[in-house]
Structure formats: C-alpha cells, structure tokens
Design a protein around this nucleic acid. Structure first.
Lengths: 271, 271
DNA sequence: GAGCATTTGTCCGTATGTATT
DNA sequence: CAATACATACGGACAAATGCT
C-alpha cells in the first residue's frame, strides 16, 4: 500500500508554491513484479530465525513463475532492505540487525550493549602495535603529533557474523604494554582500569555514515564504496580529566541499527 | 585499489581463534568489470557540479564496450554509493549530499544548518491540521493522550531536490492557531517565539536509520522498504521547562550525511 | 493537448565465472 | 572432483516517465 498519498493535502493556502514532482494521476498501482515478490518473501522471512537459509534464486524463479533475473532482483531488494545476507556459493540467509543504542547515560561497552540486545558478542584482536600518533588522534588525545602510543585493531562478531572493525589508540604514558594485557579481557576500558588505575569515561562521541577506506572495506568484508557506520569516540580519566583513549569503530549497516540518543542543553532537575 | 589488505595482520598470538571467513589465497584481483567502470565514472563525477547530467546507459555501454546490463550495473553501483540520482525518462544526475550536523551546542534550525552547508533550503507546508495527540507524542510532550494539538506536515528541499519530510506536533495550550502563522516564517521555533512567548530549546533528540512507513515513503519519493534517516526531537520552553514541540523528521540518505556529535558525562570546565 | 524520441525500469532467456560444500 | 548457488554478463524486448515538438 504505497500509493496512499495521492494528491490530497493542502486544505490551506501556502506562500510557497507546492511543486509535486509529478502530477500523480494514478498512484502507480503497477508495482513491479520483483517488488511484490520481495514483499511476499519479506513477510515470510520475518517469521524465521536469523541465519536460516532461504530458497535459492532458481527455486524462487520457479515458484513465482518468473525468470531468474526477476528472482534475483527480488533477493537483491531484500538485501538492500537489510533483511538477508547473500554468500556466493553458499546461499542467502536471514539477517537480523541488533539495536545498538549510544547515549550519554550508557557506558560505552560494546560487549554489554550487544548482550543487552540479546545476541552473543565476540571480538578478535587483529593487530596490536606501537605507532606514533597521527594528527587527528593526537589532537583528540591532547598529545603531541607523533608521540608514542599503542594501536589496537580489532574485529567484532555478533552471533558469529562479522559486525565491526575498530582502531583504538592509547597513549604510551597511560599504558606502555597493551599487548600483554589485551588477550585476557574483552574491553579496553577494563584493561585501563586494571593496568593503569584510570577511570575512563566517554567524553565525546561522533556518529556518522560514511564511505570507508580500503583497509576498513577489507576488515568488514563489504563491497567497496558502500557506506558504513562510523563511531568516533574519546574517553577521559574521570579523575584527572585527561584523555586516555581514542577510537574509531566501523560497523556494517546490515549488522546493527545504530540509534543515537542525546539530551539537549536544557536539563530538568531530578528526572 | 581495494585489494591492498592481503593476508598480512597478526604479528601476535591471540587467545581467541582467528577465523577469517575465507582462506583468501589470491585476494581477488579479478575485480568485476562493472565495479571498475563505476570507479572510473566516480572519479570523473567528483569533478562535476551537483545536478549535472551524466552519460546514459547506452552511451556508457558503447564507451566501455560492454552490454547494457554491465553499464546499468555500474550506474546502479554509483547510485548505491549515493553519488548519483537517477530519474526514469530523464537521465542520471550527479548528486551531492550536504553535511547535516546535529549537536548539543547547535540550535536545531534546519534552514540555517543547510545554509551553513552551502546549499539553499526550502520548505513547503503539505498539511496543517488539528488532531488529538497519539500515545508516543503525548508522552514526549507530557500531555494526556488524545489532547488537542496541531500537526504540521512539511516537505524539505535542498537546492530544489527533495530532501526530507516531517511531522511536528504543537499542543493547543501552547499555540492554538498554527495555520495562520505557518506561512510567514520558515521555522516552527520562530512561530512559537513570536506567537506564544516561549523560548524553545531542544531537550532531547534521537537519531536512527530505519524503514519508513508508507506515508513517509510517498513523502520522500523513495522506493518502498529502503532505510532513511529519522530524527526525533523534543523542545522545551527554556523558562518553564515544559515541552512545547515534538517532531519526527525523515531524510533521504542520498540527500544528507547526518553526523551526530555528543558530549559525554565528563565535561571539562571552560573548554 | 497530442505525438514523438529519449532514457531509465523491468524482464526474458542464456551463458560463463567463481566460491562453497 | 562434482554439485550447488550466487555473480557477472550478453542481447533483446517492452513499459513507463520525461521532455520536447
């Protein structure tokens, strides 16, 4: 039921000219075949648990009595709606996004957020090395450009499906040897609390939807050029106010539904 | 240059098993033809001003000596990268997204934000009517469900391209006659300040990326089922703290690059 | 307003490539 | 190695929307 918005509207005069882009006489009752098929399949998919394998393209083509092109278009439509993931040579599988809520009142623990969404988190260290701070990270960490730091690169899985990729920078004056600690605990926050007696709290955060660089494209195993979630964040020590951690983390759009909740300048007391 | 990430990584042992989903022997130097074409076209597009019409599918097919299917796939790839907009019967046009930054330190004026991004904003009133408050809006406005309010529905254009669609709710006790005021000024904030002596400030805001309902699909003129930006917001009167405005506004992903900037609980003094 | 050429949208049938199982 | 399933591609056809005559 897409065409409900016919040409109604406007019981009042407006100062600006109302230019609908088309006359919209008959509100497109045509509805191409592959979209109809996608709608039918989407309704069926909604009942199935994540990870379930759905019918192949040939099968769908036979069922709806269309060519493979139309069947393929339907499945592609489902993929764009983020309802399925397709794996070449293997099949098409039901996808579920988790709700990933970012707010000021919530500690920035990825593992905990995922668990609260009812899924199983897992992270894998892909690299940990010492490197000089690049310009942007240096500014955020309020350190000189090129000063010593540790770079931690991790990959994230939710229910064994690839979810995200992150770069985390920790200045050397906060923690010298990250690599000996990183294998025991899941969160960098925990490492910092245990190893260096700081209390990290998130002091700044920026969420955007951007085109990733080649390293991230590979790390997320996505097609080149498709936009992904980017969450940038700075944590400070609650005691001293000094920045202790700065991170960029990218997430696949088909893996998470990111929600950012923000309170404005007006804060009612005791609420 | 996508294949730069070969099979390097991992100079350290990790506790968890590193399961890359594929063995990745030869890192896919194959690069399908349509992606190569899309990359070439994307580079050329980057030089052109927004709104420029690019070559048709037949022309591209002839130029790269491929069939129309491959040419079409390349242009579709550009569309998914949000670099072009396609109009049936007319052509394919260079697209530019504006940066739309939402932060606590910034007043929630859409027109101003668009102008700061270097584009020309325009809004059109699609409907204004009195209606009883639905449950969710009532809760946000701290009014009884079903109490009297005005609903203002607007459509937004940036450089004459369709950008967004919004529902704005104003309780009747704040402002009784919205329709006589709405045609003169661009922002509801301004109406409230002029007509009812309140000082609206944004007290809460939520940004997500969600599947829109049929009314919004029509209002944004997008394909059914594709996700769009959703910004929900509540403004209160700076003096009394009472909610005076509650809105939902949807934006086309190809029209805006939404960035949410948030300060955490830790606030350094004087910075 | 009617007619026409252009352009994208949809779909067919077929074929080959490539990753997974 | 073989079977399966998705990925890419060709050529052709018609539909639908647009813009111009």
């Amino acid at each position: 039921m897409v065409g409900e918005f016919t040409c109604a509207v406007l019981g009042v005069g407006v100062t600006e000219v109302v230019r609908t882009s088309s006359a919209r006489r008959l509100p497109a009752v045509v509805r191409s075949r592959y979209v109809e098929m996608a709608d039918v399949l989407a309704a069926e998919l909604a009942e199935l648990p994540a990870g379930t394998r759905i019918a192949g393209e040939h099968e769908i083509a036979a069922r709806f009595e269309v060519g493979r092109a139309a069947a393929r278009a339907a499945v592609q439509e489902l993929e764009q709606r983020l309802l399925v993931r397709r794996v070449r040579g293997s099949g098409t599988f039901v996808n579920k996004r988790i709700d990933y809520v970012i707010s000021q009142r919530r500690a920035p623990s990825w593992h905990q957020t995922v668990r609260e969404a009812g899924a199983e988190p897992r992270s894998v260290v892909r690299d940990v090395r010492r490197a000089p701070l690049p310009a942007e990270e240096a500014e955020r960490l309020e350190r000189p450009v090129g000063s010593a730091a540790s770079l931690l690169i991790r990959q994230y899985y939710v229910d064994d499906l690839l979810h995200g990729w992150s770069n985390e920078w920790i200045p050397a004056d906060v923690l010298a040897d990250v690599d000996i600690a990183v294998h025991a605990v899941e969160s960098v926050d925990a490492i910092l609390r245990q190893m260096s007696r700081v209390q990290p709290v998130r002091s700044w955060c920026r969420v955007s939807y951007a085109l990733p660089g080649p390293e991230v494209v590979a790390g997320l195993e996505i097609e080149s050029g498709r936009p992904v979630w980017l969450v940038e964040s700075v944590s400070r020590d609650a005691g001293s106010g000094r920045p202790v951690l700065c991170s960029r983390s990218w997430s696949r759009p088909d893996a998470a539904r990111i929600v950012v909740e923000m309170d404005g300048p007006y804060q009612p007391e005791d609420e």
